[in-house]
Computed example of a mutant assay.
Amino acid sequence: MITYPHMRKGAKIGVTAPSSGVPIDLHHIVKEASARLEEKGYRLQYGETVWTQIKAKSASAEKRSEEFNQMMTDNQVDLIIPPWGGELLMETLEHLDFESIQSKWILGYSDVSMLLLTVTLQTGIATAHGTNLVDLRGEEYDATTAMWEQVLSTESGGEVIQYSSEMYQKEWDFENPSPHVFHLTETTEWKTTTGQRVEIEGRLLGGCVDVIHHLVGTPYGDVATFRRRFIEEEPVLWYFENCEMTTTDLKRALIQMKLAGWFEDCSGILFGRSAANTPVEGYTAEDVYQDLTEELGVPVIYDIDCGHVPPQLTLINGAYAKVESENGKGKVTQWFK
């Protein structure tokens, strides 16, 4: 059985940086996010790692792990939202105390998705792939990002529905953030490899493919054992987003997952929009998706609201989901069962 945390009203948010911390010249955006969240009734508790950054990490692996472990066992902390992602979260995995982790939400994406997936695979506790803390600093939330609160407040046994965004952001303009931080200028269009309506059901698992494929072959990437222990071998509906990979990098990572058995009883695959996916000798992202459809015999939906091209849905690792895509629009229903 999957264990679903629940975010109560006025929750205390623990902010720790298991990957990258925030350099001094950007401390103001964390403080802006804090102010906005406090206005909404949340309380915040900061770890020391949030405020430091040196050599591609917030602190040593031991200090990052110790701070995370402490917040996960602190009865006063209701959920954890890191400031953002980074590069070297993987260093912390061997120091995490999975036996003592309490049922509380962890919300984030990018490098943090490695932590999310690992926690769910190791413990059966659901985790939330969605916005990071600094993207909550706007005067308001766009409709897609705003769903993080409703999703995390859903009771165990309940369901929550999200829809594809109307518009997405093509380019960052850090100097001139909009009232909801993002500049949503492009029309969102979810696509399928068949060009037809697609409906897929299964247990959601996934994250940033750049990092989570490195879990293959480690004790932290044992998908088969997770399926036996926690979801009665139900099919998995994978979601991925590509931060920096070329198309051939992406394909190699997906082949690695396939050879490791991650796609056994896979019901389908979702891919987020990407500013990467650089073609290699004419081999495009669409070619990768088409190859997957043919090789695995499963439907693929791509350019969904997930990852580094905002806004993004809040997708719950471990939740049972039905994802529908037709005529460029999408709908995601998640059941906390």
Rank of each mutant, 00 (worst) to 15 (best):
F230M: 08
L107K: 00
F226K: 02
T154V: 14
T127Y: 09
V236I: 15
Q150M: 14
A146R: 11
S110A: 11
V223T: 04
L237S: 02
Y239N: 08
T145G: 09
E140D: 15
I200G: 01
P179Q: 11
G207Q: 06
I231A: 00
F174G: 12
E175L: 15
W148M: 04
D135Q: 14
F226G: 07
A126V: 05
I106F: 04
T123Y: 05
D142P: 11
K191F: 02
E175I: 10
R137V: 02
W172R: 14
T144N: 07
T131K: 00
K191P: 00
E149H: 12
G202M: 00
V211S: 12
N176F: 13
R229S: 15
L184R: 03
Y168R: 02
T225N: 14
T187N: 14
E232W: 06
Y141N: 14
F174I: 13
Y220C: 03
D142Q: 02
E201I: 01
W190H: 08
S156M: 13
Y109K: 13
Y141C: 14
E201P: 07
Q122F: 03
C208V: 15
G130E: 05
V216N: 08
T193G: 08
W238H: 12
L121W: 03
T194D: 03
C208S: 15
D135I: 05
S103W: 05
F230E: 01
R197W: 06
A146T: 10
H214I: 09
L205F: 07
S178Q: 11
E186P: 04
A126N: 02
S178K: 10
F226N: 02
M167W: 10
P219A: 06
T185G: 08
V134T: 12
L107V: 04
L237A: 04
G158D: 12
A224P: 00
V198D: 06
G195R: 05
N176E: 13
L152Q: 05
Q169G: 07
E155S: 15
L107C: 01
Q169W: 01
V211T: 15
P177A: 12
E199P: 10
V119P: 02
I161S: 10
G217Y: 03
F174E: 13
D142S: 06
E139R: 14
Q122N: 01
W105K: 09
F174V: 13
F230K: 00
T123V: 02
V216E: 03
V209M: 13
Y163K: 07
V209E: 15
G138C: 08
E241K: 11
A128I: 05
G206C: 06
T123F: 02
P179T: 08
E189M: 14
S164C: 00
A224D: 07
L121F: 03
L117H: 02
G157S: 12
T154Q: 14
T127I: 01
R203I: 15
D173Q: 15
W238S: 07
R203Q: 12
E201C: 07
T187C: 11
G195T: 00
E155M: 12
V223F: 02
Y163T: 09
I125Y: 08
T185L: 11
Y141D: 15
T185S: 14
T187Q: 09
G206E: 07
T188I: 05
L116T: 08
E175H: 13
P179K: 06
M147A: 10
E166K: 09
D210Y: 09
E140C: 13
E175R: 13
H214W: 13
S113Q: 05
V112Q: 02
